[in-house]
Nucleic acid binder design. Structure first.
Lengths: 340, 340
DNA sequence: CAAGTTAGCCAAAGCGCTTTGGAACACTCT
DNA sequence: AGAGTGTTCCAAAGCGCTTTGGCTAACTTG
């Protein structure tokens, strides 16, 4: 059942039927009702390929997925996707993942824009002066950044959490508890979120007249193993930290293991706070010692990004509005006063 | 630059240019070369929307993503996606995720097939008599199942690992080590993989004249917390198991925690083997006691599924070929002889 | 050498929608 | 009554490709 057949059986032109269906004003209410009725009765669904060719709109949102034999997709991605998908579903939006060579995403961005494959894209894990943002900005496709960049000479729409504030609060709490030697086990230092977190910790220390030594900060990909290694190195120093702030629950698993291996205890010898993106399958309250966290649901972020993307597509949102979510500090058993 | 312009500047018809580009035989080699040349020089890329409208082919593969407020996407998904994306990239295939209400995926399948949005789909986490398979089979779209169903009255193409064999081997090893009381902490009992694993364990037990009691098998969603709970219940019984086979590394984390909480040790009091899908961020050798595993890279499976999907789209693969991968049993420190 | 092939090309008809530029008609105003 | 203003509809021209059905010229074949 296509438009031609439908209009024929209604003795109307394709024009009128099309307009009736798409809510254009130049069609009488009675006719519209007739058309709507017949469409529903015959289960007419406009062919998206045809519509796309005619309008250039695809009804999909895009994501360029960096791939490669040695490229790992962030496990956070799946949670973000849950939220995104949940919203997208209610708006009949599909998501197209365009795999790209991790060393050359630009080609793929250009392709999906030139081909008008998607109506909007989102970008995640931005870095300072991220070239993808400049690219996508000049290409003129609607987009939203999940996270933030820095040092760009233009504004852009984004959704981010207050990483600096969160880690500032975490560090401040530890300082208030009397800790003098803090360490930070961070994510990849080239990503903005990690930079912001470091900044937060430094700011808290500075307020107490302290600084974060080179040796007291580790920036690594967020795996259990890297958490373990980082913690071991830190804890085996001459003057080991008495408190650690850690950028992910997964790394925190490694930290806990290192602490145990060294015969130390939490929070007796070491206080620990980690960032929690809220995974259904790993919860901080279930750590051997319930873990204090800075918490922000990455899933909700996914839903919100989808919502804003949809708004941009339909022209309801414009401009470079940035949105920063506050982060909860949830104190559990893993922090205590500094050991004497 | 579109076909019309290109053909005009070559003084050829659109027909000929189109055919030259698409490798049809009714065009002379010289002309073809001229066309190819000009196309490359002017960066001509056929408009996919137009091509799709004309051919009905989209150059994308589809996946129906169950969503909902209380629906969690399996963390394995992201690793599978890595492999899939890695292959898809080299073939300029995009992946479209169509979010669906988890309680009604059928509508979405029908939609993407009717709209010809994708050239093929894959289906994951199949259950016995899974209705999605019957649906997709009658809808006539090329597909591959990652995993297997059971009790269907037709054959279908799939890629699965030998879950039964893997867990049979794992259980057999434990029995050989003298364990008399085995337990299984399994995934969702409604999924075929879990059924197969249970079958493997039972078969091994049966060969030694034993059975798996109702109380010695737990089927739960694979979270750390559920692993912990299941293990605690098992270990607090009057006659606790001396060996556990576990369906995922994530649950194994919980098992290890439970063992510790109860003041027991691995492998002194309990031997543990878990299935490892090979995550970059959590490795069995890094468990407090290196974990024995049945291992199979879900990432490789993703790549293979993409490969076969591509083959089906281009007509190179047909029929209902099933492919079952063997699983490695990797023995590490977490298993030992049964305590006396 | 006439008839039949074949190689190489083209014009035009789709694919199924949206949108432009009117046309027809019924009103309202002066 | 005639001009002006809406309202409601339509024919046809796209969107940019693929594919059908031919046409021409050159080449076999008996």
């Amino acid at each position: 059942m296509n438009l031609k057949q439908l209009s024929h059986m209604l003795s109307l032109s394709q024009t009128t039927v099309s307009r009736a269906l798409n809510g254009y004003p130049e069609v009488s209410e009675e006719t519209r009702r007739r058309v709507m009725d017949a469409a529903k009765r015959h289960g007419y669904r406009p062919n998206p390929s045809a519509r796309r060719l005619a309008t250039g709109k695809s009804g999909m949102i895009g994501y360029v997925l960096p791939t490669g034999a040695s490229v790992d997709i962030d496990p956070h991605f799946v949670e973000f996707l849950s939220g995104l998908g949940d919203y997208a579903r209610s708006h009949e939006l599909d998501l197209v993942l365009s795999p790209a060579d991790a060393d050359d995403e630009e080609t793929t961005y250009r392709r999906i824009v030139a081909n008008r494959q998607v109506d909007a894209v989102y970008i995640s894990s931005p870095r300072p002066a991220d070239r993808r943002l400049a690219l996508v900005n000049t290409l003129g496709i609607p987009f939203i950044v999940h996270g933030r960049s820095e040092g760009l000479d233009f504004d852009y729409p984004y959704l981010d959490i207050d990483n600096e504030g969160a880690f500032h609060e975490a560090a401040r709490l530890l300082l208030q508890l009397g800790h003098k030697r803090l360490a930070l086990i961070n994510g990849n230092e080239r990503e903005t979120f990690a930079i912001h977190r470091e900044r937060g910790v430094r700011r808290a220390l500075a307020a107490s007249g302290m600084t974060l030594g080179e040796r007291h900060i580790r920036s690594v990909t967020m795996t259990e193993e890297n958490g373990y290694r980082a913690a071991r190195r830190l804890l085996e120093e001459a003057e080991p930290p008495t408190a650690i702030v850690c950028s992910s629950l997964i790394m925190a698993l490694g930290v806990v293991r290192a602490v145990r291996d060294l015969g130390l205890t939490i929070p007796g010898d070491l206080s620990l706070i980690a960032h929690d993106d809220v995974f259904p399958w790993l919860r901080p309250e279930n750590f051997p010692v319930p873990l204090s966290t800075t918490r922000s649901s990455i899933r909700l972020a996914g839903a919100r990004v989808a919502e804003r993307l949809a708004a941009r597509i339909s022209g309801l949102e414009e401009g470079a509005r940035g949105e920063v979510w506050p982060v909860d500090l949830v104190v559990r058993g893993s922090v205590a006063g500094a050991p004497v």
